[in-house]
């Protein structure tokens, strides 16, 4: 090992230096200050009331553009879901879930006996209604950008650590710089939105393209819109979704004050549940399994010691 010790030390130093060197790309998403209740070790639980409020935010805000095609209304009333109650073990009997579904009119997957399409109120067994009939319609309505399906969005962002995806949603929804946007009249006589930066070496002006919105947490490239040192471009990129959660955007049924960060927190919790509805079951099974395995390992260790006690090895 002598030969390689200096090598290893050097490599360690490089790895350390690298963490400081990383720059550009999207800003690292962060959890809200109070953290995520579901990410606690060893048996974190989703904040059920927050998931309920998050569903309200989804219904009233997100669902006008984003579908959740992997979810059915019944999921809301299944164990671990936001509207599960012990007296209704079968989600199809859950009056809350039935009421939520019944408010929504869907196109029945089956036509009537004449072959004509049937529109009817949804039942718990139906999948969430999609806001657009197809991807093309979705893109056409959003300036060519496709609003992603949100069913597994919390698993599709971050690095697979518990809470990465929820932190992304939270950071993105609270990360818009709308309070910093200034407007001037451009060369062509039209209004141009821009943001002035003065953060350390990141000094300059970022022009927001028409119909797009700057967000430091959105993966993208700000270089073409940046008037400033190209070595220090702002984090993030531009997305077609305008800021959606100004204070008071929804009126919570439970009376909670609907601030931007509260709504972002709630909708992130809801999407966290939706991305992995069985996470509660997973967390509650974890501890017994770990205990069992550790006890078995201890027993085997002593068996091993006993069996080998008379053997030199």
């Amino acid at each position: 090992m002598k030969l390689f010790r200096p090598l290893l030390v050097g490599l360690g130093a490089i790895a350390l230096g690298l963490t400081a060197h990383a720059a550009g790309g999207a800003k690292h998403a962060h959890a809200p200050e109070k953290g995520w209740s579901f990410a606690k070790v060893p048996a974190g639980k989703l904040d059920k009331e927050s998931v309920q409020r998050g569903f309200q935010v989804y219904q009233e805000v997100c669902s006008s553009c984003h579908g959740m095609k992997l979810l059915s209304y019944r999921n809301l009333g299944e164990p671990g879901g936001p509207f599960y109650y012990d007296q209704y073990p079968n989600a199809n009997d859950n009056p809350l879930v039935k009421a939520i579904a019944a408010e929504i009119e869907i196109l029945d997957p089956n036509p009537d006996e004449n072959g004509d399409p049937v529109y009817r109120p949804a039942i718990p067994a139906d999948t969430f209604r999609s806001p657009y009939p197809n991807d093309q319609a979705a893109m056409a309505a959003n300036g060519g950008a496709m609003p992603p399906d949100l069913s597994v969005i919390t698993k599709a962002r971050g690095h697979g650590n518990e809470g990465d995806g929820a932190s992304y949603v939270y950071s993105l929804m609270t990360g818009y710089k709308d309070d910093k946007i200034k407007t001037k009249v451009g060369d062509d006589g039209l209004n141009v939105n821009y943001i002035e930066f003065d953060e350390g070496e990141m000094v300059g002006t970022l022009t927001q393209p028409t119909g797009l919105y700057y967000n430091p947490y959105f993966a993208g490239d700000t270089t073409p819109q940046w008037d400033g040192d190209p070595r220090h471009t702002p984090y993030g990129g531009f997305l077609a979704m305008a800021p959606q959660l100004p204070d008071g955007r929804v009126e919570y049924i439970d009376g909670t004050e609907a601030t931007t960060s509260q709504m972002a927190y709630d909708v992130a919790n809801f999407l966290q549940w939706a991305g992995d509805p069985k996470q509660g079951q997973r967390k509650s099974l974890a501890l017994p399994v770990m205990l069992y395995l550790v006890l078995l390992a201890i027993l085997l260790w002593f068996s091993y010691k006993r069996i080998w006690r008379n053997v030199e090895h």
Partner: peptide, 16 residues
């Protein structure tokens, strides 16, 4: 399996 099932994979694989 129980605490970090997705940490060894890539998040992009949850995008269809």
């Amino acid at each position: 399996v129980f605490y970090a099932p997705n940490v060894l994979g890539h998040a992009d694989n949850y995008i269809e």
